[in-house]
């Protein structure tokens, strides 16, 4: 693979993450807030699964940290959660590639829920945040979005020949 190709792959991956970050902080009505899918986790899971040699724990930590800065949350909170998501996906990526789409979606549900659980633990330790059931709806929405996002990102990866 040429150096040029290598750089282009990186740019494409970075671009998808930037889009995910923008979608994560896009202003929206308050009622829709709990139903916002965890875009960054989804994109991270996809790239960890498709190109584990490029995207891994370090990238997860970095985008998590950027998300912390954008959210204004405790620095390291999202970073830790995304690190864990990346790690688990790397461990599972060979199996996830083989899964039928619905089973993949279930795995994504679990991964995103773990992400949310970690964030909840940290928030609870720091500010005693009240838990509401709607908090978990984001994981479910992420699961429902996954098959479509998977198709889009796969197209992006094939067109840009990211490998």
């Amino acid at each position: 693979m040429s150096l040029d190709q290598n750089n282009r792959s990186r740019m494409v991956i970075a671009f998808t993450f930037v889009v995910a970050l923008i979608l994560s902080i896009l202003p929206g009505p308050a009622w829709a807030q709990p139903f916002r899918p965890d875009w960054v986790s989804l994109v991270l899971i996809y790239w960890c699964m498709a190109t584990p040699q490029r995207v891994g724990v370090g990238v997860g930590w970095t985008v998590g940290l950027i998300l912390d800065v954008l959210y204004g949350s405790l620095l390291g909170e999202q970073a830790l959660a995304k690190t864990l998501v990346a790690f688990l996906t790397l461990k599972l990526h060979l199996r996830m590639r083989m899964f039928p789409r619905w089973q993949q979606a279930m795995t994504v549900l679990v991964l995103v829920a773990i992400n949310h659980l970690v964030v909840l633990w940290i928030k609870d330790l720091v500010t005693h945040a009240p838990v509401r059931w709607s908090y978990w709806s984001s994981s479910v929405v992420s699961m429902l979005i996954w098959p479509w996002l998977f198709i889009i990102l796969r197209d992006v990866r094939r067109r840009a020949r990211v490998s």
Partner: peptide, 14 residues
Amino acid sequence: TRFVVFTALSLALM
């Protein structure tokens, strides 16, 4: 190893 390192880094940051 990376996971452990970055987890420690996150905890330290927090």
